[in-house]
């Protein structure tokens, strides 16, 4: 990795030279004074908005005398610089990419937006919100990816790190990292790694939770939830979508956000519904993230521990409590 030290002003001036859209997530913004001073950029609630818009036209259809025509709609190239926290960045690399960039079925719209994306990760040295729990699901406050620009305030300025040449303008201005700072970073990294190792759910958790599929506790867990879906729309990893049409003789095929919280999501044409009630739907949301996704995706949790769903929920349904409640029951039931 290339690394260096820049000043806050140097960093902000470089951001201003960026020729494209700049977005910062609400979560990163709250935590960004040291990096951005009073400088403000357009806020987004959630990283997925940039890559997987809530409303997306995937192709166009049109009727004329000769019949139907289908036109592919290429997503126009829109360079975007996104500032996010490590948990939110993991939602992209560890979850969304694994769905929409799956090698046998790459989503071309996602791929275009993803290639236009330059990601800046603001490191967290302390959990910024009381609802944060990234270390429980395999993350930590200093998590980064070589493709992203990692930024962390240190005594001598802002420490930056990347392997991506998109950021070479900034990297060229950077001063070398002095020995003391390097030590400081190493120390912080060590602490973050240790905390992650201590906190992360044991490797067998996904299968063990799946084995609790028929546990009566799900009934209690679902009791309070309104099935309003707010959590799923705020969640950076919730990726379920609907495909529908808009317009009769001329219109668009739409790809729009959908959620497992709604009965229509799984309703069969016969009227039968495999997830007819709150229990089945809440269980799906929890197990998708904590069992099914990791079982399919090399142990990656479908939750990055950002805590947004806990903050938004009108009835204070708390996924952390739910997971801990079920983890305590591990070994007590069978599927």
């Amino acid at each position: 990795m290339n690394s260096g030290i820049v000043t806050t002003n140097g960093f902000i001036s470089w951001l201003k030279t960026y020729s494209g859209r700049i977005n910062i997530t609400e979560k990163a913004e709250k935590y960004s004074r040291e990096m951005l001073g009073d400088h403000q950029f357009p806020l987004i609630k959630n990283v997925k908005e940039v890559l997987f818009p809530s409303y997306d036209r995937v192709y166009q259809y049109r009727w004329d005398q000769k019949g139907w025509k289908l036109n592919d709609l290429a997503v126009p190239a829109t360079p975007t610089l996104l500032v996010a926290l490590p948990c939110e960045a993991r939602a992209i690399f560890e979850v969304l990419d694994r769905v929409f960039r799956k090698e046998d079925s790459i989503d071309s719209g996602y791929q275009q937006r993803r290639q236009d994306l330059s990601l800046v990760i603001f490191g967290c040295t302390a959990a910024p919100e009381p609802t944060c729990f990234c270390t429980r699901v395999g993350g930590n406050g200093l998590w980064t990816h070589p493709e992203a620009l990692f930024v962390l305030p240190v005594s001598s300025g802002l420490y930056i790190e990347t392997e991506n040449t998109v950021f070479s303008g900034l990297m060229n201005e950077a001063k070398p990292v002095e020995e003391a700072t390097r030590k400081q970073i190493q120390e912080l990294n060590k602490k973050a790694q240790e905390k992650m190792r201590e906190d992360t759910l044991p490797q067998e958790t996904p299968q063990a939770l799946y084995d609790l599929f028929h546990d009566p506790e799900w009934e209690n867990i679902a009791w309070k939830c309104l099935n309003c879906g707010a959590c799923t729309f705020l969640c950076p990893t919730c990726y379920c979508f609907d495909l529908s049409t808009e317009g009769r003789l001329k219109g668009y095929q739409l790809k729009t956000w959908d959620a497992c919280m709604f009965p229509k999501f799984t309703l069969h044409a016969s009227g039968h519904n495999p997830r007819p009630g709150y229990k089945e739907r809440v269980r799906q949301r929890v197990l998708h993230k904590f069992a099914y996704f990791p079982l399919r995706e090399e142990g990656r949790y479908g939750c990055v521990g950002c805590g947004k769903c806990v903050e938004i929920c009108p009835v204070n349904w708390d996924i952390r409590d739910v997971v801990e409640r079920m983890v305590k029951k591990i070994g007590s039931g069978t599927r």
Binding site: V99, F100, K102, S105, D107, Y210, F213, Y239, C240, F241, D242, L243, D258, C260, F265, T266, L267, H268, A269, P274, Q284, L287, H288, A291, Y292, F293, L295, R296
Partner: peptide, 18 residues
């Protein structure tokens, strides 16, 4: 049979467990 949309294992609705 399940309610299906994408047919590609992406839209998230047709799963039975994993």
């Amino acid at each position: 049979e399940m309610r299906m949309k994408c047919g590609l294992g992406k839209c998230g609705r047709c799963n039975i467990g994993p």
